[in-house]
Structures are given as structure tokens and as C-alpha cells.
């Protein structure tokens, strides 16, 4: 294999990485402040909430589903957790928030499995409906009012550490993301359960015939998606110190964007949480670069949409 072929092969298989490098190089040429330590820390900080939701979405998509309920889960877990701080204390509220994510994931799985909605299309509408349920529950729970950490009587140091704590110049939320991503990578690639999830996503009938407990694997996928979305919500409100009942709006689209751009196949069964990290990086970098270059919000939306379309087009070409 000559050098030209090798480069072509590398580019074809690492398109996101190459896009990130080109985007970074072009932005750095036009705006030298892009390459400062401050901006690097800024980028890592912006990784926070979306990255956790995208990890959960990766598992759902590998497992053969698209979980649109993440937006509602983020909203409800955030307002619920913040309201529990004065009741249960910091640790108790954190556990309660994550438990809420687990409960919502379980409900998703229960409804999907019990209805026999085992195809991506059928489950898509169920999770969409459930997202509306969770978002409405967040509005009812709060009376539509934004919850403020500053209004709490209890200490909130733990949440402040999650939201704005740093180890050197590395944000705590980014470190947590790396740890969870590494654990999930090992889970998906080195454990039997992880491989069973991939097989279930690739071909549920074949997985069932092989004796894989597909319903339990689907349940696990939705529970993990729920708990990771709840964790994303906690990182999010810890960062901005408030939680509105609409906090999770649009998170599902950005998470799907990050996952698909990262190279996880929408057809299910194939993907990687490490690649999702690259997808999240591209989404964040895109906003960061366009903000630094002074591109208007309207054009930024066009750029994001174009990136998603290109990613799906490339995904289909790879499948063919």
C-alpha cells in the first residue's frame, strides 16, 4: 500500500477527525486566539452536558433505537434534583436525580418492550411521546418556574464542583466524561453484555434466535440512556446554577447530531462511544469556531444542519 492510498484510507476512516483538524486549522489562521489555553479550557468546559446525553444516545442507537425522550429526561431530572437539595442534602439529591433518570429509562423500556415496539421507527414515536410527558411533568412540578441554586438554604458545593470545578485547567465535568466514556467503551467492547447489545441492535431476530435476552438488553440500553441524560442534566444546572422546566429542549437533536457525526450507524449494531466524543467535539468546535469568526446564529444553524446531512449521507454510503 503506497503512501497516497494509506492517506486516502486514513481520511476515509477518520473523516470526523480530519474535519476537526481542518476546522481548527482554518479558525486558528483567521482567529489566532483560537489556539490559546483559555479557549482549550473553554472547549472542554462546553463538552459537559451534551457529552453525557450523547453517550446515552450512542448506546440507544447501537442497541437499535433512537431515544427522543432525553430532552424530557434532562428537564425533569434537573428540576427534580435541584428541588431535592434542601430536602435530602447534596448527596441525597444527586442520588435521587440519577434514580429519576433510571426510573424514566425503565418506563421507556417497559412501554417499548411491552408494546412490542422493537423496531426503531415504532419506538421513536413512543420515546417522542414520553419526552412530552416528562417535559410536561417538569412544568407541572415547578409551576413553570425556574429553579435557582442560589435560592436554596442548603450547601451546594458538590454541584458547584461538578459545574465549575477544575483540576488544573481541566474542568471536572470533562474528567467525569472521560472516565464514564472509558468505562462504557470497555463495557461495549470487552463484556458479553456489551456485545449482546451490539448484536441486538444489528439484528434483533438473529440475536433472539441466538438466545440473547433481547428484552433485557433493550431495557438496559434505555436505563443507561436515562441515567446518563440525568447526569447530563445535573452537570448542566450545576454549570449555569439554574434549571428551567424547559432546560432539555433541543438536546435530543444535538445528541443525535453528535452520535451520527461521530460515525455510529443509525441502522444500529455498529458504533463507538469514543467516536461519539469526536462527534461532540465537532459539534462544540463548530459553534466555538463560528462564534469566534462572528458568523450569525442563522448561518450557524445552517452549518449544523449541513454537517448532519453530510454525516448521514456518508453513513449510508458506508453501509452500501
Amino acid at each position: 500500500m503506497d503512501a497516497k492510498t494509506r492517506i486516502g484510507y486514513f481520511v476515509k476512516n477518520n473523516l470526523v477527525l480530519v474535519t476537526i483538524m481542518i476546522l481548527a486549522a482554518v479558525t486558528a489562521l483567521i482567529e489566532p486566539k483560537f489556539l490559546t489555553v483559555a479557549n482549550l479550557g473553554n472547549l472542554m468546559n462546553q463538552f459537559g452536558p451534551l457529552s453525557f446525553v450523547a453517550l446515552g444516545m450512542t448506546l440507544a442507537i447501537i442497541g437499535g433505537f433512537i431515544d427522543l425522550s432525553v430532552a424530557g429526561i434532562v428537564s425533569l431530572s434537573a428540576v427534580f434534583t435541584i428541588s431535592m437539595i434542601d430536602v435530602l442534602g447534596q448527596g441525597g439529591a444527586l442520588i435521587a436525580g440519577l434514580a429519576a433518570g433510571v426510573a424514566m429509562g425503565l418506563l421507556n423500556a417497559f412501554i417499548v418492550v411491552s408494546c412490542g415496539a422493537l423496531t426503531q421507527a415504532k419506538a421513536l414515536f413512543i420515546t417522542y411521546g414520553l419526552s412530552a410527558v416528562y417535559s410536561a411533568a417538569a412544568l407541572l412540578y415547578t409551576d413553570g418556574a425556574t429553579q435557582h441554586m442560589s435560592h436554596l438554604a442548603s450547601r451546594t458545593d458538590l454541584f458547584k464542583a461538578v459545574g465549575s470545578g477544575r483540576a488544573g485547567f481541566i474542568p471536572a465535568s470533562f474528567l467525569l466524561f472521560i472516565i464514564i466514556m472509558a468505562l462504557l467503551h470497555v463495557f461495549l467492547t470487552r463484556t458479553q453484555t456489551g456485545r449482546e447489545i451490539c448484536l441486538t441492535g444489528a439484528n434483533i431476530t438473529a440475536a433472539d434466535l441466538c438466545g440473547i435476552p433481547v428484552k433485557r438488553r433493550i431495557t438496559l440500553v434505555f436505563v443507561l440512556s436515562g441515567v446518563l441524560s440525568a447526569f447530563g442534566a445535573i452537570v448542566l444546572f450545576s454549570r449555569i446554577t439554574t434549571a428551567s422546566p424547559l432546560l432539555g429542549a433541543n438536546y435530543e437533536t444535538n445528541a443525535i447530531l453528535a452520535v451520527v457525526v461521530g460515525g455510529t450507524s443509525l441502522a444500529g449494531g455498529r458504533g463507538s462511544v469514543v467516536r461519539t466524543m469526536l462527534g461532540v467535539m465537532l459539534v462544540i468546535l463548530l459553534s466555538n469556531c463560528l462564534n469566534l469568526l462572528g458568523v450569525s446564529t442563522y448561518l450557524q444553524s445552517v452549518c449544523k444542519g449541513a454537517v448532519l446531512i453530510i454525516a448521514i449521507w456518508l453513513d449510508r454510503r458506508r453501509v452500501k
Binding site: N42, P49, L236, S244, N250, N291, S296, T297
Partner: peptide
């Protein structure tokens, strides 16, 4: 401008502006 009256977005935008 933001995409959805979001405090998280205003924080990101402000961070980017601080860098710039």
C-alpha cells in the same frame, strides 16, 4: 443570538467572546 432562550447557550457564547 441563541437558538432557544437558553442560559447554557448564553454562557457558551459569553465564554467564546471572552476568549476572543
Amino acid at each position: 443570538a441563541t437558538e432557544s432562550w437558553s442560559s447554557n447557550e448564553t454562557m457558551d457564547i459569553t465564554q467564546d467572546m471572552i476568549v476572543k
